[in-house]
Design a protein around this nucleic acid. Structure first.
Lengths: 251, 251
DNA sequence: ATCCAAAAAGTTGTCAGACAAGCTGATAAG
DNA sequence: CTTATCAGCTTGTCTGACAACTTTTTGGAT
């Protein structure tokens, strides 16, 4: 039985306006301190009520893009006021951006794997082993193939957890969750048939064994290779693994 | 003349309510899918108008904490829907959290320095050299000591820019901006008098020279040492630099 | 007793109007 | 020229109404 999906709702006007405003602030190259049109003017431009504008602006305030002063207006906030970081900004990222994101993941997850190898405790290894087992079960279809992506994600988060640094764990979990859909082509029937899941699992095993062995450098390298291979599986050759030809030119 | 600060405004009711709601969702341990009280009930509880509640909820929607369905109510969103990552969540972080954050910075900035060393172009080196010069000027007080923290930040962002990966650059910039205040004790008069600024600058120079030389491993190591030293200067000995005694135990 | 359809009650989304609080620029007075 | 005042404009909050949707209750048929 195919999994049942919730019914999609139309996007609220406030969210539509918020997205358009954010895109405008981003792409308009507005300097910090630049003033936005007044609410009254935005009402006229977007042909919505003032409440919708205010809710949209509230969203942008939450994200730190805008700050307002009563009586004066709303302004583009200084960069330093942004309290949050986003990987995906407004719409689906292109291949180049995805490649950049994967490289950031590579940097972070390689560092996490190295720390995990040096700090892992028996309970961390047990968590890793459990995620490994779940992926094995998904591979031989005794555990349900739908668990593959989830177990894959759990494996990455368990590595980060083994660093003992909650901030690293949260960031790795955040990055993984932003692209949970990217794991599906590896673990679905086509991916398993094509050997993508088996290849990913072999890479996971290399990471696991290096962490188990307490070998930080090997764990980092295995993690880099895994992320590079994952990017390749998704058709993102952008930069990852193509830096072997260093230039070494000196100014 | 002391720098003039903008006048602080009282926090808007919508922001007050948003913060309290967020804290409640976080600390209430609410599972994804848990329902929030209705707007009508929140109006009664917070003794504010419905518009204030809606704006507060809009903020939480922007952050991905909450999603609502017309007619049904507002619900805690699944974790995977959070579109943004925050280093600081509600109030000032404690020393342990700051240490964790610095370690995440160490991982990312070491990786960035390594990539920068391998990819830097002449214009990247020029940017780095400019930031270095600005810090030198702040050190010998010909450029104005207030520029020290800004130049310090610009140096770090320039390293990330030299990776050629905009995502890495954005994240490094984001992390740096969250803690721009942490640079002040290094560069203010007391910090300069105590030699903290000079020490930081020596560390910057080591990073710069490694990047200039195209030596990725040396750049990464220099970056790690710099972040660890910066944490020490701030009294954050938590974990950074204290992992030299690997255990190496095998299960 | 059970099931189904309709109605009622409740909820979020949007609109409109009013007033409070604050800001900015123009004008008048000294 | 400087300072104070005022008018106009802007954001913040409140209120009421209606639209659209969801959930619960009620009543009728089987």
């Amino acid at each position: 039985m195919a999994s049942l999906q919730p019914v999609e709702r139309p996007m609220s006007l406030a969210e539509v306006v918020a997205r358009e405003l954010e895109a405008w602030v981003r792409q308009g190259g507005l300097a910090a301190g630049a003033q936005l049109p007044s609410e009254k003017e935005l009402v006229g431009r977007f042909c919505v009520s003032r409440a919708v504008i205010r809710e949209a602006v509230s969203r942008l305030k939450a994200d730190g893009w805008i700050e307002s002063r009563q009586g004066a207006g709303a302004f583009v906030a200084p960069q330093g006021r942004r309290g949050s970081f986003r990987l995906i900004a407004g719409g689906a990222p292109g291949a180049a951006t995805l490649g950049d994101i994967f490289e950031l993941r590579s940097v972070v997850e390689a560092g996490a794997a190295e720390l995990a190898a040096r700090r892992r405790r028996p309970e961390d290894l047990a968590c890793l082993a459990e995620a490994m087992a779940r992926m094995e079960a998904a591979l031989d279809d005794t555990g349900g193939a739908e668990d593959g992506p989830n177990a894959d994600d759990a494996f990455h988060v368990a590595i980060a957890a083994a660093t003992g640094n909650p901030m690293i764990q949260q960031f790795v979990a955040f990055m993984g969750q932003q692209f949970s859909d990217s794991r599906r082509p590896t673990w679905d029937a086509a991916g398993q048939g094509a050997g993508r899941a088996a290849a990913a699992q072999a890479e996971h095993r290399a990471i696991f064994e290096a962490i188990q062995a307490g070998d930080g450098a090997a764990a980092a390298q295995a993690a880099r290779e895994h992320i590079a291979a994952a990017a390749q599986r998704l058709g993102l050759a952008h930069r990852l693994g193509v830096d072997e030809n260093e230039e070494g030119a000196k100014p």
